[in-house]
Nucleic acid binder design. Structure first.
Lengths: 231, 231
DNA sequence: TGCTAACATGAATCCTGAATCAGTTTCCAC
DNA sequence: GTGGAAACTGATTCAGGATTCATGTTAGCA
């Protein structure tokens, strides 16, 4: 990077941010390879040369776009689920927040799939970061007796991410709808509820027995930030 | 296409098939855009010019690779689940067959994600074709009382495809394992079983009431070819 | 007002690789 | 064994686009 994001004047910051946005838009519309620097700088309203004051290369911009939006998404999910009590309600809030965010960033959905060959770590890290936090949160919920035990929580995390990803893709990308329809969201709720809810819900005492608590309240946010869809 | 697959001599057929395989391999390794015709013809053991006797363009080869393998996969899944009785066992057989096939075609997994910008219909149709058959099979199973009702079967189909896709990606692509580990497969079985199995399994009579049958046997294959993971 | 560093410009450079084409080789029907 | 069709060859053409660079502009401070 020619100019670090931190060491820029307000003017420079504005230009960099315009280039990021233009990159997200053009990469999303044309794909990484068919997007030209000329289109991106044009969309950002700057000259070609200006691009290289802020990014080393086209690939560098791609990395920056994905990293930036990844942070945003994770922060968003953390925020949306933090105040929600109980793993299953957290899941529902998480899916809803995920769909909403994806609807506002449809370009990113497509960019991401394209990113595997631009920089293979970009693509992997996006999902690994989500999955790590997600798996931890699910493990905790299982230990608390909130949801059913499974052989491998990481697989569970990937399965849930896969559900979110594919359903978002179906409606937001394939159909180009502005939102995921309530019907689809409801279906996911049904599925997640059936798949995760412990078969014998009234045996709550096991939970308190396993992890004694003081107040008896479910201690919202105990999983360090409301992990849902990984955060 | 310069030379239709049908109107070729045995020699031509062999060359075309070598190009298809080389394409799958090189596209998978380097990605569509970074794969050059030279690499593909080199890998196939023919000269550059030969390529254009069989395919109109690089894009045309990509389309052919995806279409060819798509047919293979669907046939494979149909075959793997045809003889299995009951929707949930069919699901398990379907996931197993899917993972096995994907393990043998890891390149395709990556190619597919890349294909969205090569030819947007390629990518969509791959999943739409799978989802259509899958949704029908699930609808039938619901009507038969074999699995729980959901708001929208198509969403259910996409959710299940998402699970398969992401778990395959996790192990076969991210970790480059030769197979999806049994642990992960077992986890999916647990999930699918919990999510789909009717809550009150012993009330079988509802089923016979809804769709009276003669012999009483579950009529394996009644869903026209054993749809699992869409076929 | 004048000075300097940061910011901006866009035409020119340079490389890559898809697609072509003029010619060569293989195959097989007669 | 010969004619012609099918298959094959690979050097060449050509367009597109990432990156560079020589030069111009702005903003803020003394």
């Amino acid at each position: 990077m020619r100019a670090e994001a931190g060491s820029l004047t307000a003017r420079g910051e504005r230009t960099r941010s315009r280039l990021l946005e233009a990159g997200e838009e053009v990469f999303g519309r044309r794909g990484y390879h068919d997007a030209s620097i000329a289109q991106i700088t044009n969309s950002a309203g700057v000259a070609q040369g200006t691009f290289y004051l802020y990014f080393d290369s086209k690939r560098d911009l791609m990395r920056a776009v994905v990293a930036e939006r990844g942070h945003e998404l994770r922060a968003n999910l953390a925020h949306a689920t933090a105040a929600v009590v109980g793993r299953i309600p957290k899941e529902e809030a998480g899916f809803a927040a995920f769909f909403e965010w994806m609807a506002r960033h449809r370009a990113l959905c497509r960019i991401l799939r394209n990113s595997e060959y631009v920089d293979s770590d970009l693509y992997r890290d996006w999902y690994r970061q989500l999955a790590n936090g997600y798996a931890h949160a699910l493990r905790t919920a299982i230990d608390d007796g909130e949801i059913s035990e499974v052989d491998d929580v990481e697989t569970l995390a990937y399965a849930l991410m896969g559900i979110g990803d594919f359903v978002a893709m179906r409606w937001l990308i394939f159909e180009d709808r502005p939102t995921v329809p309530p019907r689809a969201v409801a279906t996911i709720s049904q599925l997640v509820d059936r798949a995760l809810r412990t078969q014998t819900p009234p045996r709550r005492r096991d939970r308190w027995a396993t992890r004694p608590r003081v107040g008896g309240a479910p201690a919202a946010g105990s999983d360090s930030g409301g992990q849902a869809l990984g955060v």
